[in-house]
Design a binder for these strands. Structure first.
Lengths: 234, 234
DNA sequence: TTTGAAATATGACCTTTGTCATTTTTCAAT
DNA sequence: ATTGAAAAATGACAAAGGTCATATTTCAAA
């Protein structure tokens, strides 16, 4: 992986990102000012409490965004993938970061300085609309998750989370293995439960034949049954 | 309360709303096309699953926004007050409403048709930015609430909710009574717990001298102690 | 290959919270 | 004022899920 990937104009993620509707001249402007970097697995992109100086655009890799709960317990609030932008929430609110971003694997990231990003947003209605759509979609996801957290048992939420991981990061070539390695603790912090409960339920799912476990590898054997277990209405 | 209040240009909420940065000509445009209405307490502004045809701007009153959980249990996800706009999430995502809006008291609401609202957003960068700020702030609030729901006991969440209600709707002339009437069930659906648990804990809070209860009237006697009970870090 | 720390797994137990049943209160309609 | 239904309050109990202790396994560094 090279720290300086292709230009934004040629970027494979361009039409898969919030910049999909941005005008050519603005993409060029961003390309001129962007700074690319590789973050190793476990490395911090930014830390809760810091001031945002721009946004991060994931070119290739995976990142988790998490809050530090009061007792120090991590709550993972988003999973980011190639084409996703992060850091915009704090920037647009005029806040400090309320969450930390950590690479889940070696990840290539481009940094776009605040003034450039804001400037383009101000002069490109298409991109501004796309930004609003991203924000609205995130808000939607967050509110649904909030409701499920308040109302659904852990078993259902874990099943839902496994399907969410599958939807977000996809499946490996074998057609069944989740294309990301997460610890049991991370899965628990995504579900919003204790690590032991997650381990226990994963074992149950395995006993019931819905999944297969092999270290951090998780295989989805019966997606239909998992979906039924998640008990989703919408 | 008259169904047709002052013009948008003269509206008391104008600089207290997402339109605060909108240009004069755009406010005029909105004023020309808006349709105002009074919703009685308990009346539906819009229903989960319906298509949005515009946004609602609260001129005077209080509205709750809630999801219907799978088991039919309500989860209140936002409380709206004068100057707040609602219905934008679905509209900007291009979705149907994912939540229902219900008046908590007799409420004066102006409806702004979709094409006007979108048109102004497209031609008014100031307002578009303000819209992004509103979305970002909501996203922030939602993600914090999500973390607390996953990690904090009900006692702390109830204390936090009472303070949130106070912050949102304020206090009556006596300086201590919450300026909104919510049923125990509604408070429970805001906290994300069973009605009985909420009733029990409110009684505890009363016994401990933090609040006073008189029907639906709730008085905050010791805000400091309530804040300590909420155990907030941020 | 060994080895030791970290991650995973499992059991026992206890706390929190939800559910159900019942009583009491409130409040609006008559 | 009366009354009846809805809301609030309270108790008893059950279930879900968290915590703690203790194996067992994994996996990377030596």
């Amino acid at each position: 992986m090279h720290p300086n990937p292709s230009s934004c104009q040629q970027c494979a993620q361009r039409f898969n990102s919030v910049f999909c509707k941005a005008r050519e001249e603005h993409v060029e402007l961003i390309n001129d000012k962007k700074v690319c970097n590789i973050y190793k697995k476990g490395q911090l992109l930014f830390n809760e409490g810091a001031y945002p100086f721009g946004v991060f655009c994931i070119n290739d890799g995976k990142v988790k965004l998490s809050h530090q709960g009061d007792n120090g317990k991590e709550q993972i609030i988003r999973l980011l993938k190639s084409g996703d932008v992060l850091g915009y929430r704090a920037l647009l609110s005029g806040d400090r970061y309320s969450a930390s971003a950590i690479a889940l694997e070696d990840t290539q990231v481009c940094f776009i300085p605040k003034d450039i990003f804001v400037n383009v947003l101000q002069h490109d209605a298409g991109m501004a609309f796309e930004m609003m759509k991203v924000l609205s979609d995130e808000l939607h996801r967050s509110e649904i998750k909030l409701t499920h957290l308040a109302q659904k048992p852990i078993r259902e939420r874990l099943a839902e989370t496994l399907l969410f991981i599958k939807e977000t990061y996809g499946i490996e070539a074998d057609g069944i293995t989740l294309a990301v390695k997460l610890s049991r603790e991370e899965i628990a912090n995504l579900v919003g439960t204790a690590t032991e409960s997650t381990i226990r339920l994963l074992s149950e799912f395995k006993k019931e034949g819905m999944i297969e476990l092999d270290g951090k590898k998780i295989q989805i054997l019966k997606p239909k049954q998992l979906l039924a277990t998640a008990n989703l209405q919408d």
